[in-house]
Simulated scan of single mutants.
Amino acid sequence: MQVLCIGDSSIPGDGRPCAGLSKAAIEGAISITMSGPEGVVETLRRAQYDIAVVQQMSPDVRLLRHIRNSRLPTPVMIIARDITASGVAEVLSVGADDCVPASVDPTELLARLRAIVRRASGHDSLSLHIGRLTVYVDRRQAHIDGKLIPLTRREYDMVELLALRKSQVLSKEAVLDNLYAGQSEPHGKVIDVMICQVRKKMRSLGIDEPFTTLWGIGYRLNEDAFAPLSARMNGIDGIVSQVSRESSIPMAPGINIMAPSDALDIV
Rank of each mutant, 00 (worst) to 15 (best):
Y156R: 12
D82E: 11
R153K: 15
K189F: 05
A120W: 07
R112D: 02
P101H: 04
P106V: 02
S31M: 00
V100A: 10
M233I: 13
S167V: 08
D262P: 00
L109V: 01
E27C: 06
M233R: 04
L21A: 08
D192Q: 11
R220G: 00
S171D: 01
M158N: 03
M202Q: 04
Q183G: 05
D208C: 01
L44R: 05
G254K: 02
H129M: 12
A29T: 00
V243H: 15
I239D: 07
R46F: 03
N69W: 15
S35E: 10
L64T: 04
I11S: 13
H66Y: 11
K189C: 02
V243A: 15
G122E: 05
I79E: 10
I266H: 12
P17Y: 15
P186K: 05
I78D: 09
D177Y: 10
V3G: 07
L72V: 11
G182W: 06
G131W: 06
T213P: 13
I149D: 06
V159H: 06
Q55C: 15
R165S: 05
D265V: 02
P17C: 12
R232F: 08
D97C: 09
L63K: 06
C196I: 09
I144K: 05
G182H: 11
P106M: 06
I249L: 13
P75D: 10
M251I: 15
N69M: 14
K166P: 00
T84E: 09
E38S: 11
D124L: 15
F226W: 01
Q55M: 14
S35G: 07
D105C: 07
V76P: 04
R118L: 12
A52F: 13
A89P: 00
I144D: 03
S35Y: 11
K166R: 12
F211V: 00
T152A: 11
I207Q: 07
A89V: 02
D145A: 06
R245I: 10
I144S: 05
R154D: 01
P101C: 01
P73T: 07
R245D: 12
I144V: 11
M258C: 00
L126N: 13
M258W: 00
S93H: 07
D138Y: 14
I236C: 03
I249N: 11
D265Y: 07
R71L: 10
A24W: 06
M202I: 03
E90W: 03
S230A: 12
V40F: 08
